[in-house]
C-alpha cells in the first residue's frame, strides 16, 4: 500500500481583531491508498478547515499537504459538503453530472454515468427533479452521487450526514459503507459522531479542542462488508466508549471555550 495523502505540520491562522486565531495547529495525517480515515473532534476544532485545505479551497498558513496522483485520467479529489451544496438551479441528473461536465465529458456519456449513479443511490425517477423537490436525505444522496460519479481518487467528506435526522442518517451510513466497499477510494471523512466513525472507518483520528491538533488514533478492526448490525455488538460499544473516554476532556474543554 502506498501513501495517498500526507499532511505534515498543517497550521491555519486567521487574522482577527483580537489577534491571530489558530484554526488548526500542527496537524499531521497520513492515509494509505484505499483507506477510509475518519477525523473526529469536538466542534470548532478545525476539522472542516483541515478538510478544506486538503480540498484546495483554503491554503495552509504553514505545513505541507501532498496528495499523490495515481496517474489515471480521473480527478484527484472531490468534496462532499455538509450543507449538500448541490446546485438548486440544476436538476438531479445535471447536478450529479456536474464534475463530468466541467471536465468536458460529452453529454451522452455523462448522462449515462449520472443515471447509473442515480440508480445506485436509489433516486430512480428523480433524475429531472430540482433539489427543492427533494428531502434532506435525498439531497445528500445527490451530493454523494455527484462525488462518486466524478470518480475521483480521493473523496473528502465534511460531515456529510451531519444535517440529517437520526433515522435517515442510519440508512445513508449503510449506503455509504456499501458504496465505498464497491469503489475502495481513499476517503477522509470528518464527523463529530464517534459511532459513525467506528461504523464507517478503517481508522479514527482524534483531534484536540481548538486549536485542533493530533490527539490520538484508533484502528477499527471490524470485518467488511459492514452493516448497521455491527453497532449492536459489544466490541463496537467498547471501542466507541474507549474513543469517547479519550475525547471527553477535549469536548468539555471545547464547551468551556464556547462559554
Amino acid at each position: 500500500m502506498s501513501i495517498k495523502i500526507k499532511a505534515a505540520g498543517v497550521t491555519k491562522v486567521f487574522a482577527s481583531r483580537t489577534g491571530p486565531v489558530y484554526a488548526v495547529r500542527n496537524f499531521n495525517l497520513a492515509a494509505e491508498e484505499g483507506e477510509f480515515v475518519c477525523i473526529v473532534g469536538p466542534s470548532g476544532c478545525g476539522k472542516s478547515t483541515f478538510l478544506r485545505i486538503l480540498g484546495g479551497l483554503i491554503a495552509p498558513s504553514s505545513g505541507e499537504v501532498t496528495l499523490a496522483p495515481g496517474g489515471a485520467q480521473v480527478p484527484l479529489q472531490n468534496m462532499v459538503f455538509q450543507e449538500y451544496a448541490i446546485f438548486p438551479w440544476k436538476t438531479v441528473v445535471d447536478n450529479i453530472a456536474f464534475g463530468l461536465e466541467m471536465r468536458g465529458v460529452q453529454k451522452a456519456e455523462r448522462q449515462e454515468i449520472a443515471l447509473d449513479w442515480i440508480r445506485k443511490v436509489g433516486l430512480a425517477g428523480f433524475a429531472n427533479s430540482y433539489p427543492y423537490q427533494l428531502s434532506g436525505g435525498m439531497k445528500q444522496r445527490v451530493s454523494i452521487a455527484r462525488a462518486f460519479a466524478n470518480n475521483p481518487e480521493i473523496l473528502l467528506m465534511d460531515e456529510p450526514l451531519g444535517a440529517l435526522d437520526a433515522q435517515t442518517r442510519v440508512v445513508l451510513q449503510e449506503e455509504l459503507v456499501h458504496l465505498w466497499e464497491g469503489a475502495r477510494k481513499t476517503i477522509i471523512y470528518v464527523t463529530h459522531s464517534i459511532e459513525e466513525a467506528v461504523l464507517l472507518g478503517d481508522r479514527v483520528v482524534l483531534m484536540t479542542a481548538h486549536p485542533g491538533t493530533n490527539k490520538s488514533e484508533f484502528a477499527v478492526p471490524f470485518e467488511r462488508p459492514r452493516q448497521f448490525a455491527l453497532t449492536s455488538t459489544p466490541e463496537f460499544g467498547q471501542l466507541a466508549y474507549a474513543i469517547w473516554k479519550d475525547l471527553e476532556g477535549e469536548v468539555k474543554q471545547a464547551m468551556e471555550q464556547q462559554l
Binding site: 451544496a85 456536474f98 471536465r103
Partner: peptide
C-alpha cells in the same frame, strides 16, 4: 458553498460564471 463546490469540481472562471 456553491462557489466552493464549483471550484472543487474543476470549474474554470467561465464555467463558474456560466454554471454557478
Amino acid at each position: 458553498i456553491y462557489l466552493e463546490a464549483g471550484r472543487n469540481y474543476g470549474a474554470n472562471r467561465w464555467q463558474l460564471f456560466r454554471h454557478v
